[in-house]
């Protein structure tokens, strides 16, 4: 279906929230793709990082919220340090996660983790994972 681009879509609440939470000016992005080129987790992402940013630019809230990409972002910050325009892309991903987590939409269920898995993981992995993937 053809995507309708309109003032309402470009300035929707979701875009405003992401801008507010991430503190990033999404319009700086000229879609060079360097974030996606260097992303270590791109190989399992449904949207590349530059496509997430593009979706924010076009106000495609539903495309972003239904994407697994923000949850697969490991916050390694390679995108952030190499972005030619100085956009902290990792913070944009965090903003997307936060919007979901604040609605109690957790990405993982800690109670559902296997006992053995929990036992073998170091505390740093568990705390880190729960901080990033649960609210």
């Amino acid at each position: 279906m053809r995507l309708e681009i309109s003032l309402g879509r470009l300035r929707n609440e979701f875009v405003a929230k992401i801008t507010e939470l991430s503190g990033q000016d999404i319009n700086l992005c000229y879609q060079c793709g360097k974030c996606s080129a260097g992303c270590p987790m791109s190989f399992i992402m449904d949207l590349l990082p530059n496509q997430v940013i593009r979706s924010v630019q076009l106000g495609l809230a539903e495309d972003i919220t239904s994407s697994r990409t923000p949850w697969l972002c490991a916050s390694c910050l390679v995108c952030t340090v190499r972005c030619p325009k100085g956009i902290d892309i990792a913070s944009v991903m965090e903003a997307v996660r936060q919007i979901a987590l604040r609605r109690s939409e957790d990405f993982i269920d800690p109670a559902g983790l296997e006992r053995d898995t929990v036992a073998e993981l170091p505390p740093i992995a568990l705390v880190c994972g729960f901080r990033k993937l649960t609210g």
Partner: peptide, 20 residues
């Protein structure tokens, strides 16, 4: 040397971390 190992994704997606 500075490539990410997959970090906390080990909790939710261990297969991806294995690839990393």
């Amino acid at each position: 040397a500075t490539e990410c190992c997959g970090s906390f994704e080990i909790v939710s997606d261990p297969d991806a971390v294995i690839e990393r």
